[in-house]
């Protein structure tokens, strides 16, 4: 554990709770892509199946359970409890376009040809692109509410901080995980355009609007 990873994890947890709290307090899922949230739930379920046979630390176990339960709760709020407020008309990104390539990549790049390792690789690749339905939705509606922007900023920062963590671990422990690093870089690049808009608009008190 180093400071970069800790900050990355804090940012990740913060993102998850910002989203849950926003939906709960406004009693609305407007502007949130249910499809992205389903993809994140698949990511956590596929990656954290090792909960049952591999113990890293209490910290890891608690975080894994937290991400699985929070993402399931988010999907439940969007598709069941506040279904009437969910903006399904604008949430039209075809998720098979990210599910199928992630699965294919997992069969090509993995650390061993076992079910759990394939699931782990699949989850790493899928996580990199799971935000696409949400970014697509923001582009389609042309704007995002400020709290949604804060959510996206925290979620994007998490993987960017992990990149610093990987650089640090490479020099201090010789640790190098090519699959996570490559996917993590792609994941962070996908947020760059949003980061720019966030800094130039949201942080200056304006609403995030995308030019057509």
């Amino acid at each position: 554990m180093n400071l970069f990873r800790l900050m990355g994890d804090v940012s990740h947890v913060l993102a998850v709770f910002i989203l849950l709290a926003k939906i709960w307090r406004t009693r609305s899922a407007a502007g949130i892509s249910g499809r992205s949230q389903i993809l994140f739930t698949i990511v956590y379920l596929a990656r954290y199946m090792d909960l049952f046979f591999s113990f890293i630390s209490l910290y890891n176990t608690v975080m894994k359970l937290l991400f699985i339960s929070a993402s399931c709760a988010t999907v439940y709020l969007i598709y069941f409890k506040f279904r009437a407020t969910y903006d399904g008309n604008h949430d039209t990104f075809r998720i098979e376009f990210v599910l199928v390539p992630s699965l294919l990549l997992a069969f090509i790049f993995h650390y061993s040809m076992s079910f759990f390792e394939l699931a782990w690789s699949f989850s790493i690749f899928l996580e990199a692109v799971a935000i696409l339905p949400q970014l697509f939705m923001v582009t389609k509606t042309g704007e995002a509410e400020n709290i949604t922007s804060h959510y996206l900023f925290a979620l994007g920062s998490y993987r960017a901080l992990y990149i610093l963590n990987w650089i640090y671990r490479y020099y201090t422990e010789g640790h190098f995980d090519p699959i996570a690093v490559c996917a993590g870089i792609v994941q962070t690049i996908l947020y760059c355009d949003f980061f720019y808009l966030y800094v130039t608009k949201v942080l200056q008190g304006r609403k995030l609007q995308v030019l057509p």
Binding site: R5, D50, S54, S112, W120, H175, F176, D177
Partner: peptide, 10 residues
């Protein structure tokens, strides 16, 4: 360290 035995990150 190149190929990991356990995934210790989240």
């Amino acid at each position: 360290h190149y190929v990991r035995a356990a995934h210790d990150e989240l």
